[in-house]
Design a protein around this nucleic acid. Structure first.
Lengths: 174, 174
DNA sequence: GCGAGATGATTAACATGTTAAGTGTTTTGA
DNA sequence: TCAAAACACTTAACATGTTAATCATCTCGC
């Protein structure tokens, strides 16, 4: 039969067939769907960002900084949706490349305030056109209205789960 | 108002106009929306998985293996939506923990065939109930119908971008 | 004041994402 | 037939995700 890649039907002929129902088809689980969709989108942007020496996260940070005059690290983390440790590392790098500037707040020596540099702004402006074009093409393909609906549903989903709190009820509890 | 930063108040005096509108509000960009939504969902599952000593990706692999009798590594990568290198590392670990079994195909010595072990199945069965309960709660909150719609839109988005291919047209081209 | 606890940020440690090389095997085509 | 190309997988190297620990500062209560 020379099976090159019978991806989805490969189990049936294997003998014992399916091991029981895979719970929820698995490939259609919500986390998987979200992951695949996001990857499909990001796949479009990554090459361009890479051409400018930026990773997706670095881009997120610079983008976020473009919207404010200056911002504290914790607040920036929330804005760029990054965890503290990731942000720390990336800021260290961006600062070394002089794309951002950092200084400690006078009032509270614990806090650090970050802002984008002129060089950082230039970089953003260099990447933006391509980025915008890609986004426009995605919008065109999917439909502006539909895209809005999708965004709303995603926001609603996020909101709806906001107070659910990770379910601990399980075996290895402590 | 005592501006927070003095030396480089960035934009305005930098000459090149102001920060202009942040492109697309940024926080509402599609990649960000997808990321936030996915994180909101995964946040629910992670604690339970962790209680069983599994990461999200390890769980994905075991779940995928549950649906088939045996499968080649490359095929498994596609099914679990993981890149080859990640899968290699994780399989090494899962094999060491005896949750999966691996053997090379006779026909083609290059290929490796993986299957879940009895121990792996037990683990899956231990995690599944909690996992299902969480999924049910998410479905209840968001609405089964709406969830279906969302899944469809996500699939359509993925499909629509399938042939778009990463946009290379940019500066640092090579 | 001052010491315990809270807070902001970083570091540590380990797992995965991502691209590029490297290692065997198998196919191909001259 | 045999060497180059293709292939399946693994390693390597670096960046980020994720949780825990650490550090420095701050706040508060006594």
């Amino acid at each position: 039969m020379a099976r090159k890649k019978s991806s989805n039907d490969s189990n049936v002929e294997a003998g014992l067939a399916v091991r029981r129902l895979p719970m929820r088809e698995f490939s259609r689980s919500l986390p998987m769907s979200l992951l695949r969709a996001r990857e499909a989108v990001m796949r479009q942007f990554r090459p361009s960002l890479r051409n400018h020496g930026l990773t997706e996260q670095q881009w997120r940070i610079l983008r976020a900084l473009t919207a404010v005059e200056a911002i504290e690290v914790t607040e920036l983390a929330r804005m760029a949706f990054l965890l503290g440790p990731s942000l720390s590392r990336i800021l260290r790098d961006l600062e070394a490349r002089q794309l951002v500037e950092r200084k400690t707040a006078e009032l509270d020596q614990r806090r650090a305030v970050v802002s984008i540099s002129a060089k950082g702004v230039k970089l953003i402006e260099a990447v933006a056109p391509t980025s915008e074009a890609i986004y426009a093409e995605i919008t065109r393909r999917f439909g502006a209205r539909r895209l809005s609906e999708l965004q709303e549903m995603l926001a609603a989903l996020e909101q709806g789960l906001a107070d659910m709190g990770g379910a601990e009820s399980d075996a290895g509890e402590e």
